[in-house]
Design a protein around this nucleic acid. Structure first.
Lengths: 267, 267
DNA sequence: TTATGTGAACTGCTTCACAGCA
DNA sequence: TGCTGTGAAGCAGTTCACATAA
């Protein structure tokens, strides 16, 4: 290619690579703890359960970190990945929905390291609001509006206070809340984590967006509608289980439920 | 095209399709509840947040379910997907690790419908063993060995009690679990769900395998080593959060950690 | 007309295989 | 000699575009 030799650092990183980085990082941390200083792509691949070429290609997307004939310097590599993942920055996180899952998340290492810092816990149930989880006290969801970052002009509409009702499927999406007025995302709006029942998830997402959040991690089994520019990632705890039964069923597993099939709806 | 016109039903289904099926199914259930009888690929695609062609292709892999010019019969489609996912069969599930996550899973709809049936809850902590969760009592992990399904001959070695050592890759797999001797996989070995800390996950996996499990859903952030033939799927609650910070970091978000902020370390 | 079902093109991801370098 | 870095091939998944059928 002519002159245009762009730095690997600015290349587009495939999503598939991104989700492997945390795995590499975890393994490197373990290796470092065990005193390892150098690691080969093969060793890393074995431990991560992937192919060695994939490991090398993944890293090469960010630059040339290794030494031919030797391998990678574990500490250096770990630092590079940490930087790529943004784990050397500060990421405030709020968790909405303090049921068992919310508790699990709030207490999990994964949510308290890598730069993540839980700055707010919210719920609507009187039996949880006011209790403390870790070092924080659970607040009522109504307090969430106070999150409004400096970037949000005070003239903004007050978050459409539909507290926690079952949230009927909004046939009309909430008219794109928080239009791209003139506020660049300079202040660190917290990442919003939704750990509520599915019925409340959309309205919580609306609240989060109104409060300035532009990244949502959704654990509720529902597809969220958010304005463009808001990043959403979904984790569905039961999808993998269902995928598993799919494969098991093809394999011939599972007992047929006394050979009747459930008429499935309008029988 | 020579006579070999194989039924679409036996075609290999891409993994990507498999993990979308639960989403379609959920949406169909909602539509049915709302009284819908017919649905188009476009409607479904909108609600699932995917492309309509993808929806059609996904379904076409299983056969021709739709009616041109009209769409899909929602109830019929739902039944087909339910069958494909094996949700019309019975899938016993055991959950190991009854911390907050284990509780969340045990109580979640996703683990109590779609054919899944929680048949055992295990932990080692005296403060949890004996308590009841839902309709079941948490048992000590030691009881897990009693799971041995009928298919397992009583002469089987007693689970190789390697508590929590690194679990060297078993060069000799434990004699091909349930060889096609005379016992086809008729007895439903439960699906094992690991919701323990990472440090315990491998030894729990070993116990599960010894007890006859051939499918493990692992929530611990660790790569499990299991004999061939054992299906493992991983869900890491924090990977998606880290992937999110990756994208946010590239976008220019997050505050660099030194100078301001609470230092975000050992506060 | 309307919406499915699907070949074909395309994009993205993985794996191979080997040149390049310590 | 050993292991990285990477073109190129291969495979998987997505999207297009249109023939097909109700």
């Amino acid at each position: 290619m002519p002159g245009e030799r762009r730095s690997p650092r600015s290349r587009r990183i495939p999503e598939a690579t991104v989700v492997r980085l945390p795995v590499y990082q975890r393994i490197l941390a373990e290796l470092l703890r065990a005193g390892t200083t150098t690691v080969s792509s093969e060793e890393l691949a074995d431990r991560a359960g992937v192919n060695a070429a994939k490991v090398r290609k993944d890293f090469s997307l960010f630059g040339s970190f290794g030494t031919r004939g030797t391998g990678y310097d574990a500490a250096f590599l770990a630092a590079q990945i940490e930087h790529a993942l943004g784990a050397d920055r500060d990421w405030p996180v709020v968790i909405v929905g303090m049921g068992n899952l919310g508790h699990a998340l709030a207490n999990s290492d994964g949510f308290r390291s890598h730069g993540f810092r839980v700055v707010g816990l919210y719920d609507v149930s009187p039996s949880v609001v006011g209790t403390s989880v870790g070092e924080r006290t659970v607040q009522h969801l109504d307090e969430l509006a106070a999150l409004h970052t400096a970037a949000t002009p005070p003239a903004a509409p007050p978050a459409t206070p539909r507290s926690a009702q079952p949230a009927a499927p909004p046939s009309t999406p909430p008219s794109a809340p928080s239009a791209p007025s003139a506020a660049p995302p300079a202040s660190p709006a917290p990442i919003g984590v939704i750990a509520t029942p599915a019925s409340a998830a959309q309205s919580v997402a609306d609240l989060l967006v109104a409060a300035g959040t532009d990244a949502i991690l959704n654990f509720a089994p529902t597809v969220l509608v958010v304005p463009p520019g808001v990043l959403v990632r979904n984790v569905d705890l039961s999808i993998e289980l269902q995928a598993m039964s799919f494969f098991l069923a093809r394999r011939g597993g599972g007992s047929s439920r006394h050979d009747l099939r459930t008429g499935a709806g309008t029988s």
